[in-house]
């Protein structure tokens, strides 16, 4: 397990605090930004580790936001996991508590309706971007491009057309990976 100097750990914590307030539509919409920070800018982890963190969190039970502490864990062990999780949750949680107490009774005013309506397409665009960036390391590797593409398309079709629980698709992915198809 790698460990980071305290100053870097503090910077990671601050960075995730900031991302928290931007994570409209879920923590997954900040994944491209985390990738930029952890992989491209700081070089604390590589592409494969980044995608592994997300795959682990998807495979394990619980909210998908748990990919965030796994990223922290891979960078700096348990301290990193704590910094990442508390960072990504604290501001959004306090804000949500405040807003939900302030009341949902203003939901029908034009200003609030415009807020939902205006942000919705941006959120959808961000989720597409996340899926795109996550599939790149698999689709970008020529040796396994076809297998990965087939798996991704099959997953999408199954999700859209059936009510099968994702755990079964992830199991199929694991088997395909063990057999060397991906």
């Amino acid at each position: 397990m790698t460990s980071l100097p305290l100053a870097d750990l503090a910077e990671l914590f601050l960075r995730f605090l900031m991302l928290s307030l931007l994570s409209i539509g879920g923590a997954m919409s900040t994944a491209p930004e985390m990738h930029r920070y952890l992989v491209v800018d700081r070089g604390w982890m590589n592409d494969a580790d980044f995608t592994t963190a997300i795959a682990l969190a998807q495979a394990a039970p619980g909210p998908n936001v748990l990919f965030v502490p796994v990223l922290g864990f891979q960078v700096a062990g348990v301290a990193g996991a704590a910094a990442a999780l508390i960072g990504i949750l604290l501001p959004s949680t306090l804000l949500s508590l405040g807003v939900s107490r302030w009341g949902s009774r203003r939901r029908d005013t034009p200003g609030v309706r415009a807020f939902t309506a205006g942000l919705a397409p941006v959120t959808v665009g961000l989720v597409f971007a996340t899926g795109w960036l996550l599939s790149l390391p698999f689709v970008g590797e020529p040796a396994h491009r076809l297998g990965a593409l087939a798996l991704i398309v099959a997953t999408m079709a199954t999700t859209l057309k059936t009510r099968l629980a994702p755990i079964w698709m992830i199991a199929v992915g694991a088997v395909a990976g063990i057999l060397g198809w991906v």
Binding site: M28, T51, T52, I54, A55, L56, Q58, A59, V127, F128, T130, G131, W132, L134, S135, P137, F138, H144, A148, L151, I152, V153, A154, T155, M156, T159, L160, P166, M169, I170, V172, G173, A174, V175, A176, G177, I178, L179, G180, W181, V182
Partner: peptide, 17 residues
């Protein structure tokens, strides 16, 4: 290999979402 396969499925799940 298993994690690569799971990762590809994970990206498919997000695209479907």
């Amino acid at each position: 290999g298993a994690l690569r396969g799971m990762g590809a499925v994970a990206s498919g799940l997000i695209l479907a979402m």
